[in-house]
């Protein structure tokens, strides 16, 4: 501590004096974070790779041992794996696509000035704080034929008295999509709104002076400004929709007949129910590599785009 008071007369900003003890202090300060992250995040990530090469099933302790690539071979032959892969792609694509369109619309609306905007924002964003399980709870109530809103609509003569949306394969997918959109649209809007607010008002006024209509204003002023934020927001949403397990786990448990199982959900079920850690780890590694690969491809494509655009 003495070094901090050693030169009271000249005092350049602290950040410009990287003396030995300063740096020492810094390492002391970040040490707890580094230790926790190394032990409970990085070591586990590495250990999953090793674990995926082993037979390790809690329900069959006698079979434990080195497996080589057995788990991966089993995975390639696993029909549920391939189906989960297809469903994951469908789920992420549909969710992020709709969240992009509707979330952008919500952000544009909430970016305008009107009476009660603060309240409207707070209400519109409230699903952000709601957990995946609670989302399931709410939508189960809404979708259930006896408690759901359809019951009331039917008794008023709108629509017909429905069966449970979650038991029919055709309707299950869209029922899930809508429930997730309820949470996802506000998320996307929050990510975009911050950037929308940074668009200088003068630009809109200039566009008005030039006689630009709403569409033209959007394409010439708003879009170029928020384009980068949109690229990042869609990537983040895609990663999170990929990782999102809670809603699917509790609403359909991947059913009916595995038709709504994403890859991470398959991982979770293998870990929680089957307790097959070896195979679950192989699934984990595969999901991890696919996610990283897809993110890199996406970033490459979208950054290539912007170079051409500018």
């Amino acid at each position: 501590m003495s070094s901090t008071t050693a030169e009271p007369v000249r005092r350049p900003p602290a950040a410009r004096r990287p003396t030995g003890s300063r740096a020492g202090h810094a390492y002391l300060l970040i040490a707890p974070a580094v230790v926790l992250v190394l032990v409970f995040l990085f070591y586990p990530v590495l250990s999953v790779f090793w674990e995926s090469l082993r037979h390790h099933n809690l329900t069959r302790p006698l079979d434990d041992g080195f497996a080589g690539l057995d788990n991966y071979r089993a995975l390639l032959a696993d029909e549920l794996f391939w189906r989960s892969l297809r469903f994951t792609a469908q789920w992420v694509f549909v969710e992020v696509g709709l969240q992009f369109v509707l979330g952008l619309a919500l952000a544009l609306v909430l970016n305008r000035t009107f009476v009660g905007r603060g309240l409207a924002r707070a209400l519109a964003f409230s699903p952000w704080a709601v957990s995946g399980i609670l989302t399931t709870t709410i939508w189960i109530l809404l979708y259930n034929p006896t408690t759901g809103i359809g019951h009331y609509l039917a008794s008023m003569g709108i629509g017909e008295y429905g069966t449970s949306l979650l038991s029919e394969p055709d309707t299950t997918f869209w029922a899930l999509v809508i429930a997730e959109l309820w949470k996802g649209i506000p998320f996307f809007a929050i990510l975009i709104l911050a950037d929308l607010q940074s668009v200088p008002l003068e630009l809109y006024e200039a566009a008005n002076v030039d006689g630009a209509g709403p569409l033209r204003r959007f394409s010439a002023v708003t879009w170029p400004h928020i384009r980068k934020a949109v690229v990042i927001a869609t990537l983040l949403r895609a990663v999170w929709e990929f990782n999102n397990v809670d809603l699917l786990y509790t609403m359909t448990a991947g059913g009916p007949a595995g038709s709504t199982t994403t890859l991470p959900l398959y991982v979770a079920q293998t870990a929680i129910h089957d307790q097959d850690f070896g195979y679950g780890s192989a699934l984990t590694v595969t999901a991890f590599l696919l996610l990283t690969f897809a993110s890199m491809v996406y970033l490459r494509i979208s950054s290539g785009d912007s170079k051409e655009g500018k």
């Binding site: 586990p44 999953v48 990782n243 991470p264 870990a271 850690f277 679950g280 984990t284 996610l291 993110s295």
Partner: peptide, 19 residues
Amino acid sequence: MLCTQFIPGAMMLIPLFQI
């Protein structure tokens, strides 16, 4: 620190359970 934000919770179930 930023990279850790991309680590999915589901992927950590098995290794964390073992730890």
